[in-house]
Design a protein around this nucleic acid. Structure first.
Length: 586
DNA sequence: AAAAAAC
């Protein structure tokens, strides 16, 4: 009752207006998704058979809460969630992955939809249809194939089928493939294979330094890639290093470096080791940039360039991967590569049509929480991933949800300690988190197979951010659901996101499409209207030190913000910045 | 356009 009241005050859901839309699948054919009155998804009979493997997903993922599920349905969801936790664990190779192979065998994913693949460049190698086909064409250690089977990789995805041959022929590659389509394996497999192939020019391949580097933007992603790499290398003596403070110290010893095949790291970590002069990259033959557009944006570019320059071997192979690659980043990437091949799977900057997306209007920031509470008071599909725009907002939202009695709420952002981050991630992997509140740190690359719903609590700041955020669901051929809250302040950016929804087969209320594209000036004005955030960037805010319990008055977001602002202000004052910071300017 | 992330 209360929930209904809040909902009617706080939010309007446009999904009801969604009635029928064509969904283009990546193989170019088109399937009809029709949403009936009960909010159920009906599909054409020609749906690829492999999708039906995930019947559970069809039963839950696309149902709208507004059409109601009964409590029983809710309980059922919880059960499947647990099963999935095992699945996800086995499939992502988390540190806690000690469950063994029995689970891993079950986790055999379906073949991904056959996406439309375009490859451009000189002498593009032909793509393969099966992993075994690679054996006939290239030197692949049999152990790699054994490991593929062991972890349930049966059919190559589009990017794996076309990307592996390219990398195996030692070509440079710029690859764009949607979220959740197996990009990681598409570079790990060739690299591992090439590392065990003797390089004709020198007989002593080992004993001369690090041979491959993989860069990714967040610690969590680096460790996920590392775990994938470990799975693939099982049974053979590849030496793979997850680069962190501890391993960096060990690698400072030159003789240890000589025994390393692959280093997986964040850019800054590697750069700081380079600058200490203890790390040599002269023997690096393979350099991979994962989430390439992120790695090439302003904050990372200089670091990445420093690493690229430090890799002095003339026969270095470079490759970049992402689901999104804006023109600017692509130019930089292509400049970096030598005679590259450019592969695009599906449509650039477009989410998978398997993700049912919708936009929800919430008038202002204060209406978001009631809307979310109402949403969570109905049955939903855990685990649910919620994105906020800043660390303090992630912390306070998660605390607010806990106070509201939402079970198994977790929070993860980069202001937390390493241990807190690890713990939160482990809970997520084990299926113990039902609601995970996070920031952009979770937006890219993270592979939680169980996530069926993503909520953009705060509006994404770019199309790329949107595509990656909602790409945490709908992975490996599963269905997913993505909700995005928008306020009046988000208006300038609404249309570009609405176009993304349209392009990937979700429907958008007509009035949004009729919005004019706001001029730059107007965007600036809108930007100025924004309430300044109560963040002191000089301070790292951890999950546990954000707000005192005494500051928290249940149900009053406004008062809580005021308290936070007070705190920030007094801090700023002591730093003599009081006058122009943290105020609501009139 | 802008916060977050990297040590």
């Amino acid at each position: 009752m209360e929930a209904f009241h809040l909902l009617s005050r706080g939010g309007v859901n446009f999904d009801k207006q969604r009635f029928e839309s064509d969904v283009k699948l990546f193989n170019g054919s088109s399937h009809k998704h029709a949403i009936g009155k009960e909010g159920k998804v009906y599909r054409d009979a020609e749906l690829p058979a492999e999708l039906d493997f995930f019947k559970y997903a069809t039963s839950g993922a696309s149902k709208r809460k507004s059409f109601g599920l009964d409590r029983e349905g809710h309980a059922k969801k919880m059960k499947t969630k647990k099963e999935e936790a095992i699945d996800g664990n086995a499939n992502t190779g988390d540190e806690d992955d000690s469950a063994g192979d029995t689970n891993a065998k079950q986790s055999t994913g379906p073949p991904i939809l056959s996406h439309r693949v375009t490859a451009k460049g000189r002498h593009v190698p032909e793509s393969v249809h099966t992993f075994e086909e690679l054996l006939g064409r290239y030197v692949i250690p049999s152990q790699l194939m054994v490991n593929l089977r062991r972890y349930g990789y049966v059919h190559p995805t589009g990017i794996q089928a076309s990307g592996c041959p390219i990398l195996l022929e030692s070509r440079d590659l710029a690859a764009i493939s949607p979220t959740g389509t197996g990009k990681t394996l598409s570079y790990l497999l060739p690299i591992m294979a090439l590392l065990s192939t003797p390089i004709s020019s020198s007989k002593t391949v080992a004993g001369t330094g690090i041979r491959a580097i993989i860069l990714a933007p967040t610690r969590e992603l680096v460790s996920q890639i590392y775990n994938e790499c470990l799975k693939l290398s099982q049974g053979r003596k590849w030496r793979i290093v997850l680069f962190n403070k501890a391993t960096a110290a060990t690698l400072a010893d030159k003789t240890v470096q000589d025994k390393v095949d692959v280093v997986i790291s964040t850019p800054l970590r590697l750069v700081s080791s380079l600058q200490s002069g203890r790390l040599s990259l002269h023997n690096v033959r393979h350099l991979i940039l994962d989430e390439a557009d992120r790695m090439l944006d302003q904050e990372f570019l200089a670091q990445v360039q420093e690493i690229v320059t430090a890799c002095t071997h003339e026969n270095i192979q470079k490759a970049v991967f992402s689901a999104t690659l804006p023109a600017g980043a692509e130019r930089i990437a292509l400049d970096m590569l030598r005679d590259p091949i450019r592969v695009i799977v599906g449509l650039k900057d477009t989410p998978l049509p398997l993700i049912a997306q919708s936009l929800t209007y919430v008038a202002d920031d204060h209406s978001k929480l009631p809307t979310l509470r109402a949403y969570l008071s109905q049955p939903y599909n855990p685990p649910l991933l919620i994105f906020t725009s800043s660390q303090p907002r992630a912390t306070s939202l998660s605390e607010e949800l806990v106070l509201n009695g939402i079970p198994n709420v977790d929070c993860l952002h980069a202001g937390m300690t390493k241990k807190e981050r690890n713990d939160a991630l482990s809970r997520m992997r084990r299926g113990e988190s039902w609601v995970m509140v996070s920031t952009e740190v979770m937006a890219r690359g993270m592979d939680f197979k169980g996530v069926r719903e993503v909520i953009n609590y705060d509006f994404p700041r770019s199309v790329q951010s949107y595509v990656h955020r909602i790409g945490r669901t709908g992975r490996a051929g599963r269905e997913g659901k993505a909700l995005t809250y928008f306020t009046d302040e988000d208006a300038p950016y609404l249309k570009s996101i609405a176009n993304v929804l349209l392009q990937s087969g979700s429907s958008v209320p007509e009035w949004i499409l009729k919005l004019p594209k706001p001029s730059k000036l107007k965007r600036k004005q809108m930007g100025k209207l924004k309430r300044p955030e109560f963040v002191n960037p000089a301070r790292r805010i951890g999950k546990n030190d954000a707000i005192k319990k005494s500051d928290m008055i249940a149900g009053s977001q406004r008062r809580r913000e005021k308290a936070l602002r007070e705190r920030e202000r007094s801090q700023l004052r002591s730093e003599r910045f009081a006058d122009d910071a943290g105020e609501d300017s009139p």
